[in-house]
Design a protein around this nucleic acid. Structure first.
Length: 716
DNA sequence: CATCACGCTGTTTTT
DNA sequence: CAGCGTGATG
């Protein structure tokens, strides 16, 4: 039985006042590593200790993982009941509320949640129906369309003004995009679909218009805490306002210099608007850093000194001396990968644990080269961020079969599974969907579609599966397994790397086994997707190096942090479509990354690397703030860690791309060359495209398109 | 009509 | 690396 907590001993005065001030609004401005989580944890513990029922506490965080960890810690301090605190993301809260109240917005409670790729797919098919005429440039592709509509929704702007301010090069398509946006909204309403943005928007609308819902939530959540408040947008702020409007017991915690979500409408200025929403607010600043050594803080302080918008915080620590951060120009990307590997191996030999390290980067693909090198060197790693398990094509394919059973109006999933049936493409799938709707047919009756060709049993097989899945009481695990049986032959036909994908399907069955019902399983995969294999299979967590995007590394810390800063960063305004020539945000990104380090910080960048596609980046923003070296770092080259370079041109760079453009690769491979690949074995080069892609006909694996991976091809 | 091969293009980050 | 459009093929 945990004893009474000694708050005075465990917290500094600022933290203590945040923990003890339990009635009324509270804004905590907390620098990196200043014990923000600690403060939240102690506050939860204290509320529970004081007798507040855990169900009356709401903890909004950015990821479910963060919420879970906090509640776990709070339970350790006070008691087990802390685990019953409601925690989660804005989206999961919205989802929970809307499942209960969507009808008062004219929606069915059985609505389906669209994830990002569903949204894009829908937009694309609507755009196709519009037959947009091609003008001087191409119509934006589906992911750009989704970006535009999503950001317009989050900023509550109309399409026109958003495109004007951030996508100027698409100005000529404004009428078409506006029409598309309207079609999209209508379609979602007709088919009971909501995307991520709708969840937030509708929750806001619901709170704004329904006194009853407002009262109910306000009564249920008597104490509200919001983490990472600098990453919320205006709509989310409004939600917070409504949730707290009767009792005012709202505590928000954030750090303006860690705001890195402007792409979804977040603005750190929201933090300073908080006092306007809650005039009686008490403001507390946490400036003492408990994480990093002073040399690391000297660097991060100097970094933020360059910022145009000056902030008031300045972090200090009592962790006096330590190693000065290093900045290393590794010249090229492969050398960078070698440098990181050798450096880590070196330190492992000196007795450090592999778990002490993390490598951080801006975009998921920036670590590809490193991943190859790690694999060659036999260093195990887990990667967070970027590519999502639940969004890979084979997982989406499989889940779509279950989704149509849960919501037979989910036309996006219908289209997906129908097109997987042999001899059914765009045209027929749409016809079948029409027919299903008209006849009000049950999912498994799809085989009765009159247009089916005789002797073609594809639809029959599909309807067989849907019948099985629809069986009352079928557990998610069994449903997934039935779907795997059905889908396996399709998988083998569709993908040439099916062994890997087959394993993913097994993982999916493993996840499914944790659920009793189909719908929560499917909803969770969209709203709380596993972020890496480590989440699915606990064996993966231990004794591995962490690779992570900066965004996914928020709130975490490691003794040794590498930052690999690619040269294709934000470029200056010379380019019309540069929607984010926001060096300021890139600087904050670097700040977030650097403040993850406890003892040692190593920043590397491939100084000679010319960006492959965006040739202008080099002179631009990119490493301008690395180049204008802030005080308090030492500059190295990678000597001692990287073997002498191979001959010039062994690796793609801009000149090489131009020079070798069509007929051979920069590694000197030509059409018809016999090659050996470490994983796929022997093969022959069957085509070379764009100077960057190589197609190989492998003896054992058939045709494969290799991109980055082709540098590991060996001529034989 | 569906499917395949080919060449071209491209900011990214998450719920 | 993946998606898209295109033109040829089944």
């Amino acid at each position: 039985m945990p004893g009474k907590i000694n708050y005075e001993r465990m917290l500094n005065p600022a933290q203590l006042s945040a923990v003890m001030a339990n009635e009324g609004p509270l804004l905590v401005i907390a620098g990196a590593g200043s014990g923000k989580t600690r403060t939240l944890v102690y506050r939860v513990a204290r509320l529970v200790e004081k007798g507040v029922s855990p169900q009356n506490i709401l903890l909004l965080t950015f990821t479910r993982k963060a919420a879970g960890e906090m509640l776990e810690r709070a339970s350790g301090l006070a008691d087990e009941r802390c685990k019953n605190v409601s925690g989660g993301t804005f989206h999961s809260l919205a989802h929970r509320v809307l499942r209960a109240h969507a009808d008062s917005l004219g929606f069915s409670r059985e609505f389906t949640v669209l994830d990002r790729s569903d949204m894009e797919e829908l937009l694309q098919s609507l755009a196709r129906e519009m037959h947009v005429e091609r003008k001087s440039i191409r119509f934006p592709n589906r992911s750009t369309l989704a970006n535009i509509l999503s950001k317009a929704a989050n900023l509550q702007k109309d399409v026109k003004s958003l495109v004007k301010s951030e996508y100027e090069h698409f100005l000529e398509y404004v009428p078409q995009i506006t029409t598309l946006a309207q079609l999209y909204v209508n379609y979602k309403r007709e088919n009971q679909l909501m995307d991520y943005d709708d969840l937030i928007l509708f929750l806001r609308d619901l709170l704004a218009q329904s006194e009853e819902v407002r009262e109910r939530l306000s009564r249920q959540y008597r104490y509200i805490m919001v983490d990472e408040y600098q990453d919320t947008n205006a709509i989310q702020a409004e939600i917070v306002k409504w949730l707290g409007h009767t009792h005012q017991n709202v505590m928000v915690v954030g750090d303006d210099s860690q705001s890195i979500y402007s792409f979804r409408g977040a603005n750190y200025k929201n933090m300073f608007d908080f006092p306007r929403l809650f005039p009686q607010v008490k403001i507390i600043k946490l400036e003492e850093n408990y994480r990093s050594t002073q040399p690391i803080l000297n660097f991060t302080n100097a970094l933020m000194d360059q910022a145009l918008e000056k902030y008031t915080k300045c972090l200090f620590t009592r962790r006096g001396d330590g190693e000065v951060p290093r900045v290393v120009d590794t010249r090229t990307e492969p050398e960078q990968a070698m440098f990181v590997c050798r450096f880590i191996k070196d330190q492992l030999q000196q007795g450090r644990s592999i778990r002490d390290f993390a490598v951080l980067f801006r975009a998921a693909y920036h670590s590809f080269e490193l991943e190859l090198e790690l694999a060659r060197e036999g260093i195990p790693f887990v990667k967070y961020g970027g590519f999502k398990f639940a969004e890979s094509a084979h997982i989406k394919d499989l889940l779509a079969h279950l989704r149509v059973v849960v919501n037979k109006g989910d036309t996006v999933s219908w289209g997906r599974i129908l097109r997987l049936v042999k001899n059914i493409g765009q045209r027929k799938s749409q016809a079948i969907i029409q027919w299903l709707k008209q006849e009000k047919a049950a999912p498994w009756e799809v085989a009765q579609w009159p247009g089916a060709a005789k002797g073609d049993d594809g639809l029959k097989r599909l309807s067989g599966l849907l019948g099985v899945v629809s069986t009352q009481g079928l557990a998610p695990e069994k449903a997934v397994k039935a779907a795997i049986d059905y889908y396996e032959p399709i998988l083998k036909n569709k993908f040439d790397d099916f062994p890997r994908r087959e394993k993913d399907l097994e993982q999916l069955a493993l996840i499914a086994s944790r659920y009793k019902k189909l719908r929560p399983f499917l909803d969770d995969l969209i709203l709380e997707p596993p972020t890496s294999v480590a989440d699915i299979d606990p064996r993966f967590g231990a004794d591995r190096l962490t690779l992570s995007t900066v965004h996914s590394a928020k709130g975490l810390e490691w003794p040794v942090v590498f930052i690999i800063w690619a040269m294709d960063g934000y470029f200056p305004s010379t380019r019309a479509n540069s929607s984010v020539h926001d060096i300021e945000e890139e600087r904050r990104l670097m700040y977030v990354a650097a403040t993850r380090a406890k003892d040692q910080l190593i920043i590397c960048y491939p100084g000679e690397e010319v960006p492959r596609v965006w040739h202008m980046a080099r002179e631009g923003g990119l490493c301008s703030f690395i180049r204008a070296l802030p005080q308090g770092v030492t500059v190295h080259d990678s000597r001692g860690y990287v073997p002498p370079r191979k001959e010039a041109g062994w690796r793609v760079n801009a000149e090489a791309v131009q020079h070798y453009y069509k007929n051979r690769t920069p590694t000197g491979l030509r059409l018809g060359d016999r090659v050996r690949h470490p994983a796929f074995g022997d093969g022959v080069i069957s085509s070379i495209a764009g100077g960057e892609k190589v197609e190989v006909l492998f003896r054992d694996f058939g045709r494969k398109l290799l991109h980055l991976g082709y540098t590991s091809l060996e001529k034989v």
